[in-house]
Design a protein around this nucleic acid. Structure first.
Length: 400
DNA sequence: AATAAGTACAACCGCTTTTTT
DNA sequence: CAAAAAAGCGGTTGTACTTAT
């Protein structure tokens, strides 16, 4: 395998970019496009390696980058997606238009992670902190965490499937590749034109059969994901169904084709049951499974989630899901830092914004979060929330 | 006012994956 | 098909700035 030659040639500048360098790079790209990053520095009169130029462009100079403070909505999105996807910053970035993965990563590391930690939540696992013996302090929270982890596994499997589909689609119609990617057609451009419109699919269904996917192959999956983004435009032309499928449909796609998956059928049913607010029902009967809705009870994912005392806001918030409540709580913790208050429902109870280990419990005082039966709506709202998040995100997202 | 400590963020590093030759 | 180049990605570092002492 060819390794990129090291950029540390003598004479090449490193470190912060000067305004003059920025100007040179901008001017050159505006006029010629970046083309080959390797050749660009010399052509643009920069004493930088191509990689440095590329990073400067993608992370800072690109005209479609939004800089500055993250809104509450953005914070919420990051937290939610991080719970689902982990440190897959590029994947998260596709759901935050005009934000770069690098910026999100930095923001997470410097703000959100600390906030979680402060609240006694492990920012890596989104689990409550463990005691000295390594056991979770709260059993319900353990279930929550386990299910979040489970969801991540599903997502990984789905990603792998999508990446495969994109590759296969590309093979089938390479003609679309003729479309040159222009100056601003970087993969980060989730914000580009079509991003918010495609929430339903008219493309062919079902997708081609998939091979088995191990949900545990997260590394591969992570690395594969961007490719579907790289072929964003092609996806539309190719009518790759994966790019526009709803979350639950994608879940179905990956899970039903994954013989080795550990995903319980009944839980899959939960997705089907809850994820179709628009009524656009897909016929899943070809799975050859009985209608398990009646049997879902034992594995009601959202029930498990809502049993968690870490998700009290779900109980307080009419129409608000677990994650929303959860992240609201986190955001609330930081609300005093934010000047531009947004219009989220004032559902917060009198609980202090800074709740330390008791975080997540304060809001639950008004309604028992353990009241499983009362959380069906919240559970649906949770998934709707995720779906809304997903559907409002770029249709070309590699994630959903 | 000086300086140590803390914070934020741009940029770099090194690896993997994809594309091109 | 293999090698090289390019691009993508996430972790980490360096440094400027801010805050506390």
């Amino acid at each position: 395998m060819g390794r990129s030659p090291c950029c540390d040639k003598v004479g090449l500048k490193k470190g912060p970019w000067t305004p003059e360098e920025d100007q040179k790079l901008l001017a050159y790209i505006e006029q010629h496009g970046h083309g080959s990053w390797r050749a660009l520095p010399s052509k643009a009169g920069l004493q930088r390696c191509g990689k440095s130029c590329r990073l400067r462009w993608t992370n800072y100079l690109r005209p479609d980058i939004k800089r500055g403070k993250f809104s509450l909505q953005e914070e919420q999105t990051i937290i939610q997606l991080h719970a689902l996807l982990g440190n897959r910053w590029s994947a998260i970035a596709t759901h935050l238009p005009k934000r770069t993965d690098n910026e999100i990563k930095n923001y997470w590391n410097t703000h959100l992670k600390k906030r979680l930690t402060k609240m006694g939540i492990d920012p890596v696992t989104h689990k409550p902190k463990t005691d000295a013996l390594g056991t979770l302090v709260d059993g319900h929270a353990a279930k929550t965490a386990a299910n979040l982890s489970h969801m991540a596994q599903w997502e990984s499997a789905r990603l792998e499937a999508e990446a495969r589909l994109v590759r296969e689609s590309k093979l089938r119609s390479s003609s679309t590749a003729a479309h040159h990617h222009l100056l601003i057609s970087d993969h980060h451009h989730a914000s580009s034109s079509s991003s918010t419109t495609t929430t339903t699919t008219s493309s062919s269904w079902p997708p081609p059969p998939l091979h088995h996917h191990q949900p545990t192959t997260t590394t591969t999956t992570t690395k594969s994901a961007p490719n579907s983004t790289t072929n964003n435009n092609a996806n539309h032309d190719l009518e790759s169904p994966t790019s526009t499928l709803s979350f639950s449909e994608n879940m179905m796609m990956s899970t039903t084709n994954s013989s080795s998956t550990t995903i319980p059928t009944a839980t899959i049913e939960l997705f089907i049951d809850n994820s179709d607010p628009g009524g656009g029902h897909e016929d899943h009967n070809d799975r050859g499974e009985e209608d398990t809705k009646g049997a879902v009870g034992s594995l009601r994912l959202h029930d498990l989630i809502f049993q968690s005392e870490e998700a009290p806001m779900a109980a307080v918030l009419p129409g608000a899901g677990f994650m929303e409540g959860f992240t609201d709580l986190l955001l609330q913790d930081n609300s005093h830092e934010d000047d531009d208050e947004q219009h989220r429902p004032i559902h917060h109870s009198s609980s202090s914004p800074d709740q330390g280990d008791e975080a997540g419990r304060g809001g639950g005082g008004e309604e028992d979060p353990g009241d499983v039966d009362g959380h069906d709506d919240e559970g649906k709202s949770y998934w709707n929330n995720i779906l809304n998040l997903v559907n409002s995100s770029p249709s070309d997202s590699p994630m959903f």
